[in-house]
């Protein structure tokens, strides 16, 4: 809890975040086909992870904090995964006339 990061670390993280913003805007102009959204999301997730680990200090925090921080995202996956599991499997069943 009492960990104090150096200013240098914060400036490095800041620089990386700005750079990744430029990258995501630039890469949006290139057509990657099916990978367009996954790449944009991967960059966003990377930026979010940097903020969580260093600006929010989870890297230096107790295991409990790490579990709590992770649980929110785990439950999002449950919500998204199961709901989309319904929508994506609706067409699997055949019916007369199709």
């Amino acid at each position: 809890m009492s960990h104090i990061s150096s200013k240098g670390l914060y400036y490095t993280i800041f620089g990386t975040l700005i750079a990744m913003t430029v990258v995501t805007v630039a890469i949006a102009r290139i057509d990657l086909g099916a990978l367009n959204t996954p790449v944009a999301l991967a960059i966003a997730a990377f930026k979010a992870t940097l903020v969580i680990l260093f600006f929010m200090g989870v890297k230096y925090n107790t295991p409990l904090t790490k579990v709590v921080a992770a649980s929110g995202f785990l439950w999002l996956i449950i919500l998204f995964g199961i709901t989309m599991g319904d929508y994506l499997t609706r067409a699997w069943i055949g019916f007369p006339g199709r």
């Binding site: 199961i82 599991g85 319904d86 929508y87 994506l88 499997t89 609706r90 699997w92 069943i93």
Partner: peptide, 15 residues
């Protein structure tokens, strides 16, 4: 388990 409230709601039979 929430989908067991939605068996007759047009939910996918596999879900």
């Amino acid at each position: 388990v929430w989908g067991h409230h939605m068996f007759v709601s047009s939910q996918s039979i596999y879900a």
